[in-house]
Computed example of a mutant assay.
Amino acid sequence: MPEGSRVVVITGASGGVGRATAREFASRGDRVALLARGEEGLAGAAEDVRQAGGTPLEIPVDVADFDGVDGAAERVEEEFGAIDVWINNAFTGVFAPVSRIGPDEFRRVTEVTYLGYVHGTKAALARMLPRDRGTIVQVGSALAYRGIPLQSAYCAAKHAIQGFHESLRCELLHDGSGVATTMVQLPALNTPQFEWVLSRLPRHAQPVPPIYQPEVAARAVARAADRPRPREYWVGGSAMQTILGNRLVPGLLDRMLARSGYSSQQIDEPRPGEPANLWEPADRSGGRDYGAHGSFDERGRAVSLQQWAARRSGRLGAAALGGSAAAGVLAWRLVRRTRRLPR
């Protein structure tokens, strides 16, 4: 293996952000353990890693099963050596109003999207803490701060991850640990989730524009793994605006989302049929490898200006630049929209 290569574990590695992130680390010559349920997607991800210059290890596992995740971590260390980076990314969700999501569906989303992160983190800590080194990256979302309509189960799980991450970070700082954790808050992305997430919407679900390509997220996750000491990274101007807007005027955002949140999450096409990946991997029935990208390539942005500034101006300068720009854009948009809101 190339000198300086690392052992990286990625959950939810068979598609979307996880798939793109696997390629990003593989391009550095890293050994990449790929954890996911879907065997077709895992096989495709493994081939991507090989093509990019890394060494893959496919491990089929449901992150809702702690014993399975812990066993996967044990296998990684047996075959690759000590885990350097653990990336929690696996998720599922339901597109529907709260009234149309069953209790069992809320439970399943929570078990995968929140407890899956807990399970991955605990498996990583059990091996990293005795060595006093390692990095855990939690792949988050602007929706960890701002709930939106039609995604209540997912938003709730991301909020829970945010609280979990903050508690863990405080504990690691208290102990003076060499283990680091950080969180990457992502914008809307062109991933296959809009083809495979269980939906009860009348039309095809879409990411709330602007839409970024999954490689934007992958570069941010890799950067966070390289420099994990900041408590979190915000990716994309839209994520920054959402987080800042929720801090400044959350009640106004409630009304704005009540007005536009349904239409902005759907396009004028029929919703996809089954399979949905809530209970089993979407590639199981059709034998399809969904890859990293969804069906919105024509609208996907390959670069984030905010991320570009972060790489070139330093974290604090980029934060100031991005924060000022986001605050200005947010204020302008709110002034324009306030008069049109329902009373």
Score class of each variant (00 low, 15 high):
259 R>W: 09
207 P>L: 02
213 Q>Y: 15
53 G>A: 04
137 V>I: 11
321 L>N: 08
250 P>K: 10
300 G>D: 03
41 G>S: 08
300 G>T: 04
330 L>Y: 04
89 N>W: 02
147 G>R: 00
47 E>F: 12
101 I>Q: 06
90 A>Q: 02
160 A>G: 11
317 G>W: 13
330 L>F: 07
301 R>L: 14
319 A>I: 08
206 Q>I: 15
177 S>V: 06
89 N>D: 14
32 V>I: 13
197 V>P: 12
111 E>M: 05
277 N>A: 11
340 R>M: 10
217 A>Y: 03
84 D>M: 02
49 V>E: 05
76 V>H: 00
293 H>M: 13
49 V>D: 05
34 L>Y: 00
124 A>T: 01
202 P>W: 08
211 I>M: 11
274 E>H: 14
110 T>V: 07
208 V>S: 09
31 R>L: 11
272 P>E: 13
76 V>S: 00
257 L>N: 07
290 Y>K: 00
320 A>N: 08
200 R>N: 07
240 M>R: 13
6 R>C: 10
181 T>E: 05
171 E>H: 10
276 A>Q: 13
289 D>K: 10
105 E>W: 07
242 T>V: 12
338 T>W: 11
135 T>H: 01
200 R>E: 06
281 P>F: 08
333 R>Y: 09
104 D>W: 12
305 L>E: 15
65 D>Q: 05
312 R>L: 12
103 P>Q: 01
285 S>H: 07
115 L>C: 01
244 L>W: 10
46 A>P: 05
199 S>H: 03
127 R>I: 09
251 G>F: 07
322 G>C: 10
256 M>F: 14
232 E>M: 12
25 F>T: 07
35 L>Q: 05
47 E>H: 12
219 R>W: 01
11 T>Q: 08
88 N>K: 03
234 W>L: 15
122 K>S: 11
175 D>A: 14
136 I>F: 08
280 E>H: 15
106 F>E: 03
96 A>E: 05
251 G>S: 09
176 G>I: 08
342 P>R: 15
120 G>W: 01
240 M>C: 13
28 R>E: 15
